[in-house]
Amino acid sequence: MKAVASFSAALRERSSAAHAPSELADFMVDLITGAGTREDYIAHVAQQWFIYEALEAGADRLRDDPVVSVFLSDKLTRLPAIRADLAFLIGPDWRERISPLPTTQAYVSRIRRLAARWPGGFVAHHYTRYLGDLSGGPSIGRLLQRRFGFETNGIGLYLFADIADPTAFKRVYREQLDAAPWDDDEKERVIDEVLVAYRFTSELCADLARAKAGRVA
């Protein structure tokens, strides 16, 4: 008899095709391979500020939720690192000098709405962002260090100094996904929302590419 795949395995399999376009988006490829500029990187980090502000505000709101709370860990928190990155990259007045792109605005609105109305949907976005960070972030950070001559300043978004074993951390997170009290219909909804999160990531890369074209025109 064929073994039934766990929910976390099904989620990874179903989202793998959607993941590839965001990983291979031209803007990010240029950024890490040499065609992108420091200004492009700053534009990217600035958009992450708005996204993680919404995610971490939602996490605070749902900290006592019986389903969401098991996925939350202060070790994942990104906002202090992003603040430090932007202060280093832009200056002390960084907050007055950044604004969300259209896709970022839509993405943030969705995260906030889900945090208020649907815990499972919020978990879908939490999973997509933070496990993605743990999976690819350290490698991206090292590439950017070499590309722009950074040490640790400027790439704090990609550093998880409080997580000694990212592989073990991700394994526990996936075990918590498998243990979530969701029926089959809810699991399908969560998977669909993960696909939405990947779509936002791809569309944000397209927004960043358009903004870049406007800067160099």
Rank of each mutant, 00 (worst) to 15 (best):
G137W: 01
R147L: 10
S135A: 15
P166N: 14
L143D: 10
A197D: 07
Y198W: 14
F169D: 13
I163N: 03
F169Q: 08
I191V: 14
Q145L: 12
D185T: 15
R171W: 09
A179S: 13
F169I: 13
R189C: 04
E193W: 02
V190P: 05
L144D: 08
Q176N: 15
R189K: 14
R146D: 11
Q176E: 14
P181L: 04
D192Y: 00
F150V: 08
F148T: 06
A179N: 09
E186Q: 13
A164I: 06
L134I: 08
E186Y: 05
Y127S: 05
P181Y: 04
R142E: 14
L143C: 11
V190H: 07
G156I: 07
N153V: 03
L159Q: 13
T167F: 14
R129P: 02
L144N: 10
D183L: 09
R142C: 02
R129M: 11
K187Y: 03
L195F: 04
G136Y: 08
W182K: 07
E193P: 05
S139L: 15
G156T: 07
G149H: 07
V172P: 05
D178S: 09
V190F: 01
G121A: 11
S135F: 06
V196T: 14
G141T: 01
I191Q: 12
F169M: 12
G141L: 06
Y198P: 02
D192L: 09
N153T: 07
L195H: 07
G136L: 14
Y130G: 02
E186K: 05
D133Q: 04
Y130C: 11
A180P: 01
P181W: 01
T201Q: 10
L144P: 04
G149I: 08
H126S: 02
R147M: 08
I191P: 06
Q145G: 07
E188N: 11
F148L: 10
V190A: 00
A124Q: 08
G137L: 09
L143I: 01
P166W: 01
V172A: 13
R199D: 12
T167Q: 15
D165Y: 10
E188M: 13
Y158C: 08
F169K: 05
H125A: 00
Y173Q: 05
F150R: 06
A168V: 03
K170L: 11
S135P: 03
G141H: 04
L131Q: 12
L144E: 11
D162R: 11
R146Q: 12
G156H: 00
L157S: 03
D162C: 09
F160W: 09
Q176I: 05
Y130A: 13
V123M: 05
Q176H: 15
E175N: 12
R189I: 10
Y127W: 06
G121T: 05
E193T: 15
G136A: 12
V123S: 02
Y198Q: 07
V190G: 08
D183T: 11
